[in-house]
Design a protein around this nucleic acid. Sequence first.
RNA 1: GCCGGAGUGGCGGAAUGGUAUACGCGAACGACUCAAAAUCGUUUGUCGAAAGGCGUGAGGGUUCGAGUCCCUCCUCCGGCACCA
Length: 963
Amino acid sequence: MKSYDHKKIEKKWQERWDTESAYRAEDDSSKPKDYLLIEFPYPSGDGLHVGHVRSYTAMDVIARKRRAQGRNVLYPIGWDAFGLPTENYALKTGKDPRIVTKENSDNFRRQIKSLGLSFDWSREINTTDPSYYKWTQWIFLQLYKKGLAYKAKTLINWCPKDKIGLANEEVIDGKCERCGTLVVKREKEQWMMAITKYAQRLYDDLDLVDYIERAKTQQRNWIGPSEGAEIEFAIKDSKEKIKVFTTRPDTLYGATYLVLAPEHRIIATLCASQTCTNRTEVDGYVKSALNLAEIERTIEGKEKTGVELKGVKAINPASKEEIPIYVADYVLGGYGTGAIMAVPAHDERDYAFAKKFNIPMKRVIEPIFRDSPTSPAKPDLPMEKRDAVCVIVRDPADNAYLCIQWKGDDHMHGLVTGGIEAGEDLVEAAKREVAEETGYKNLRRSRDSDFAVHSLFFHRKKMINRWARFRYVFLELENEERNLVDEKEAALHEVVWKRRDELNNFFSVIEGEFILNFIDNPDYIYTGEGILANSGEFDGLDSQDAKKKITKFVGGKIVTTFKLRDWVFSRQRYWGEPIPMIYCEKDGWVAVPEDQLPVLLPEVEKYQPTDTGESPLANIHEWVNTICPTCGGSAKRETDVMPNWAGSSWYYLRYTDPSNDKEFAAQENLKYWLTPASPSRSSKSEGGVDWYNGGMEHTVLHLLYSRFWHKFLFDQGLVPTPEPYMKRTSHGLILAEDGSKMSKSKGNTVSPDVLVENVGADALRLYEMFLGPFDQPVSWNSNGVVGMRRFLERVADLAVNDETKLEPALETLLHQTIKKVTEDIENLKLNTALSSLMILLNECEKTDSISTEVHETFLKLLAPFAPHLTHELWEQSGHDTELRLEPWPVADERKLKGTTAHIAIQINGKTRGEMEAPIDADKTVVENLAREAVAKYLEGKTVSRVIVVPNRLVNFVLTDTNS
RNA sequence: GCCGGAGUGGCGGAAUGGUAUACGCGAACGACUCAAAAUCGUUUGUCGAAAGGCGUGAGGGUUCGAGUCCCUCCUCCGGCACCA
């Protein structure tokens, strides 16, 4: 048989598995279980392409293998119909999204079944089913009852052209995804989820789970905790206070103004006060700032804008100085307290703003350099402090800098430096040092700079430890006139002029890099930590110490702030679970009673959003108008619906009990599927879906939202584990052949249907797995599929003979392959698992026929990858059992090693020969064999050392005799 | 800018600090064929006639031995970004 009939074989087996519901998992607590999950497919009307299939196939391989290992595997599939693609597709085609959803899921079901994936179809769920709506709404109500769902005014992304609110994922580069119009912010009252209350736990508990590092990092960045202090600034002649958040309370003395975000509530109050003189101007600024298109507001390098609240002053609580208050959009309303203390000397943004508005700056932090690499301080000697000056002398004639090169062993390279005498003027001291060390006498100050730097080092000439506080003076050479340098000085060092580019590698002092920074950049400001100055009683402390002390001094509070914001849960569209809330004039917001759930979407003529920005549901009066559950009076339903994330936040729970009408899932089912099979490794870290695989695009928001809901349900005692997913992996995208992303709009998709038709599902599955490392993106190459087809044909052609005896060499390889395939599948190294199967096949083909034992083992190992053909071959070789029910092969440890080892022989690490030696032979035996094999290289040489790595190599190290 | 990840033949890629390029694709040659396709066999990093050099983004280091570990740099990809 040169070619097998994949269509016939695949049809036969797919029918058999479908009718028997072959892969149904049991809620049987006596069996060890595995709960494998993949993310919903995203039905968008475009159908699956080969990129979608990769994840399903990989998890299918794992599921099949684990079933064969006797585990009860739950590998469910469902349909998330809330994806934006569905709605956009429906809008584009004018179809009812519910019909689109139905068509899509039918199509996807057909496509997925054609691949022979072993999903448990008995647990299929669809998040648009009324029964699913019901429990999503029920969970919402639990959150509402605990105060975690609340209504608040927020700014939403607003597309001025389409007149609709946009979800974050519909905004690309600040523009509306559909029409490209710049998005603006608009205030709207929306339902919110207090996810920030869980921020710390969502952050900390990442340590309990086994996610790919990338996913963890992204979660951490998104939650973005930062430690700092909240400090209150009093307002002059007012009882109002402004609370700011800062990570640098050590710079408080340098805070020369405050900035409020345009959204800040206090602006209105302050404007209304008697003293404020530019109320209208401020009003105008706030309005325009809030209306600014998002992209304009965040554009890089955008000139800072803002307006001063004239006539209103704040008091710096540390220095007691009066400082101005500004409103500026470079401060974000949603982060921290929406107000900052601006320290222009130590923050680049504040500096840029202060420069534009001519606000004075005050340096309060001086960098410190310890542990000089060339001359570190000696810990046993005392430290001597000194005020010193470091002079940057530039010769404008040839743009060169005056440098000092010390004579002697250490070759110190630096600038002119020296001590400042008591009472001496800084610039005078600088000029004096230049004159003493170099003789130049006509200099003028060229730049106003009062940088100071602390440097700790061992002074070799004076044999003392020195803590020098260098102050920097910029001088310019007026002319070349110079005096003779004192002989003693001249003996110590010489004077050299260095061009700017020569300075890069010139300085040997540790602060060299730092000096170059502010030579190059007159606007250089230091944003790091250091030693405090100009800070009253805190002068001389280091930043770390000062942070705590200054915060305490001004009555501030150490707090952790998060980047994470509360979750905007409302959507103004047709498509989504209605938020089950009713508004009554008398009773306010009232929850829909649980026995009235689910609240379903009404039939509508048009499901396009309305012009007013309200949900299309707002126009359906018979649906909106209802009765208040509390007072029985007339009331209105909430017309906002939930985001697509809602249903997908808990779907893994529903799979455990998909048709339950009494609760979202029975506790015993949750307990069985979520708690680990072997409660051993660590204490509370375990539990949740055993293995969750999905695309990288869902590792931030979806993962975060579902973790939040899960933690909430855990707190209510409704789920048994604190985390929803134990292990999370992510597949790399499959890119088009040119390396670009596959998408229908680009027309570069490759449909699995075509490949299933032409080469069969098995060959396609194999190639999906063989393409490359599972977690990395790979480019699709249609030529590669034929290799997999060839491989399968050769498998089908294997000659099997009962009489054939198992050769020892083949037996060794067989067991090595069992081990390799078993391990590689668990580690998702499916490409190398397959390659080892190919190696085994290559070896099998070298003999006339193989034994039944080899053949059967081979089929078992290949079965998870290519289920159809392997099952067929199994049946053809006379078995009346099904291959998938056969136990997984186990490698015999004793047979993993052959009788001989192939050993490399190296001379000085270079391979010079190779040989066969008995396995695990004695070192001296191997060494002697190796000596014979490379005798010609060893002749006349002295072997100083021999390294023998058992069963791998022998390395002779020769001493270098007159080579 | 910050945080991740990755740079290996013509291509996808393999390699617990131990013979770099397994496995597959492609290509060349040969066999079969009237012929082509398919299939089978051989070859396939590079320089060299050979011996032997040289080779895993660049440069250093550790080591008997480095694709792998350490330092510096370059390039590409992904995420975040006025987060105080």
